[in-house]
Each structure stands twice: as C-alpha cells, then as structure tokens.
Design a protein around this nucleic acid. Structure first.
Length: 369
DNA sequence: CGGACTTCTTCA
DNA sequence: TGAAGAAGTCCG
C-alpha cells in the first residue's frame, strides 16, 4: 500500500510537471531527476499517500493553467512564489495555514447556540493530516505522538455539535498546534467552554484563535525562536491567542475581548482577565488584523460587559464528572466517578446528583431488560 | 470537555 | 499480513 501510494504520488507529480513543461515556450527547463524525486517520496513515507490524494485534488488546477498563454510578463514567466497564504474554508471554520510552521496562522469561527447543540460527538474521531495541504508543508500524527506535546484544537470539536462533518474537519492537523497537555485540558478548555457559554447571552459569537511565539531574552536581547517537534519540524508556540467578538441580532453594540495565554499549565488562581490584551497589542504581535471590516473602537469591552468568568475548580470538576457520567455503561463505574470526586474534596452540586440518579436508573433498567 | 495510549476487529 | 477503523482504558 505504501509503495503504491509512492508510485501514485510520483505518477501524479511527474504528469503534472510534464504538462507544465510542455506548455511553456522557449526557455530550457531543468527536469528533476526521477531517482531523486522517488527517493524524496519514499523518504516522506508517512506522507506519500496523502501526497497522492493531494496531487489528485490539484491535478485539475495544473491542467487548467497550461491552456491559454496570454501576455505573461517575463517577471512572472515561471510564476511568483506561493507561500500558501490563501484562506482555507471548511464546513464550520476557516484557516490561514503557515506552511513553514506546519500549524495554522489563525483559525476563524462563527458559532451560535444552534451550532454548538446537536448529536455530533467525538466517537471514533481521529486526528489526520489535512488532505488539502501539500505533504511537504503538512504536519502528521507521527510528529505529535510521543513528543510530549498534545494536539490542541484551535477550532474546538465541541463547537460543531450540529454537524459531524464540521466536527470531523476540526481534527485536520491544519487546525492543530502543539499544546501543553495540562493547558489544553485545563485553562484553555475552560476558555473554550466560556466562549460557548456566550452563545446563551449573545446571538452571534465570532472567534479567532491561533499560536504565537513571543521573544525570549538571549544575551540581553530579544530573540524569537521555537522548539520543533517530529520529522516535519512542527513549530511549538509559546502562547496561544483568542479574539472573541459578540453581537446581538437586534443590533446594539458589539463586545470584544482579546486574550494571550501562555502555552503552559495555568491554575485556578489565575483569571481570564489576567491574560486580556488590547486588540491592537495582539495585532501588533501577530501581524494580523483580526476584524478588518470592524470599525475601530466601535465595540465594548467583553470582560466589562460579560465578566469573563471561567469555571472555578468545583464547577469544572462537576462539569467533567457530568460528561463522564453520560459515557458510563456500568453502575460500578458510575459510583467510582462520584467517589473519586468526593475524594478530591468536591461536593457534587444538585445538577450533578440529578445526572447521577437518572443515569443510574437508565443503567439499571438496561440490565433488567 | 480536553487529551494519550492500548487492544480488538475488519478488510483488502 | 498489515493498515485502518472501532472500541476500551486511562488521565486532567
């Protein structure tokens, strides 16, 4: 299968190259030696199948581009460099991908109470390389596994409960950055939950998320550098940012908050407001204009209007326990979840107790049948 | 909710 | 027989 994939890749690559070569006029061109192309392809063993898919998807582009030959300036005779800066649109989110870092540059979302509600779930969801990204510039699961860094969603899966397809697309590695595990399941998770909670108080919520590397001091001088993981050299960010914009369908002023969060464990003693920055500061540091059609200063501060309160320890423990209860399939398992909660010193609130009782009844009934 | 890791099953 | 998918287990 692997060999077939490599051959397919080579066939597509060479065929695309050939049509491109024959289209041009008078200049001699260098043809890459077949051997080296093959060696390269086999070297990228994990990516070869994805390569085949990629080139198949893009074959039409190749063939359409070599038809008409108009007056092309000599400057552009061989095309201008392509850094992959175009915006990639998916069912529920949009991505600007950074081909040098193998991570998104930013990921944009618009969520509502209906988009975050539904039957879609993470069952059998698997992270995978984005088939629309050229393998040379793509991240792969192998880069993350055993790296010490978890695969952190930028557009969270849970924002797409209304569509299994939209949720599946959030598992493309074009939506993923290397994230500290504790941060991912902890503070960042609570921030994502807070963003979803905004849907109950606002009609529309727009969210832009992405990675950022802030400078470190080296010999007293500011220096930006980053770790790289895996064979694809996936860049590890020092920080993650999130810009949140809320609106009401009836009109009224918009609310905006921008946050810059270290890619490291963050405890419950820290508040979300501790990581709030001005939009212009974040734009300065990222080089990104986040809502270019939004009039500057036309919004209210989100944290002043809505509080920006993340779940505290007790609330979060109960929330997670509630999710685990729903997935439980035996009464003993059910009880152990509740017992571990008490061992942590967490007194279950009434809502959780209700969930426990109803789930227990369901399971007992199922056993009796 | 957010993950990692292991094992079993399916299929070409 | 190996790869991919499904399912199970563990953790915060």
């Amino acid at each position: 299968m692997l060999t077939r994939g490599a051959n397919m890749w080579r066939a597509r690559k060479v065929s695309g190259l050939r049509s491109w070569l024959t289209s041009g006029p008078e200049y001699p061109r260098v043809v890459p030696p077949t051997g080296s192309a093959l060696g390269w392809a086999t070297g990228l063993a994990v990516g070869c199948l994805a390569s085949a898919i990629y080139w198949r998807l893009h074959d039409e582009q190749f063939s359409s581009e070599n038809g008409e030959h108009e007056d092309i300036p000599l400057l552009e005779q061989f095309g201008l460099p392509d850094a992959g800066l175009h915006i990639r649109r998916y069912s529920g989110h949009a991505v600007s991908f950074n081909q040098a870092r193998r991570t998104p540059r930013w990921v944009a979302e618009h969520i509502t109470s209906s988009s975050i509600t539904g039957p879609a779930n993470r069952k059998n969801m698997k992270f995978k390389a984005d088939p629309s990204i050229q393998p040379l510039f793509s991240a792969f699961n192998e880069d993350y596994l055993g790296s010490g860094w978890s695969r952190g969603h930028m557009a969270p899966a849970a924002n797409y409960k209304n569509s299994q397809d939209a949720m599946r697309e959030t598992f493309f590695l074009s939506n993923i950055v290397p994230q500290n595990n504790e941060n991912n399941s902890g503070f960042w998770n609570r921030l994502e939950i807070y963003c979803r909670s905004l849907c109950s108080r606002f009609d529309d919520v727009w969210i832009i998320s992405g990675p950022l590397n802030l400078p470190w001091k080296i010999d007293g001088k500011d220096c930006v550098h980053h770790y790289m993981i895996g064979k694809s050299d996936v860049a590890v960010p020092t920080h993650l940012f999130k810009v949140v914009l809320t609106g009401r369908s009836g009109g009224g002023s918009l609310c905006l908050g921008a946050f810059l969060v270290p890619n490291a464990p963050i405890g419950y003693q820290q508040k979300l407001a501790d990581f709030q920055v001005s939009l212009s500061e974040l734009e300065y540091k990222t080089g990104i204009s986040f809502f270019p059609k939004l009039q500057r200063g036309s919004w209210q501060d989100l944290c002043s209007v809505d509080g920006c309160h993340l779940m505290n320890f007790h609330e979060m423990e109960c929330y997670i326990a509630g999710k685990k209860l729903a997935a439980t399939r035996s009464v003993s398992e059910l009880d152990s979840i509740m017992q571990r909660l008490v061992e942590k010193g967490v007194e279950p609130h009434n809502g959780l107790l209700t969930k426990y009782k109803t789930r227990k009844e369901e399971l007992v009934q199922r056993i009796q049948k």
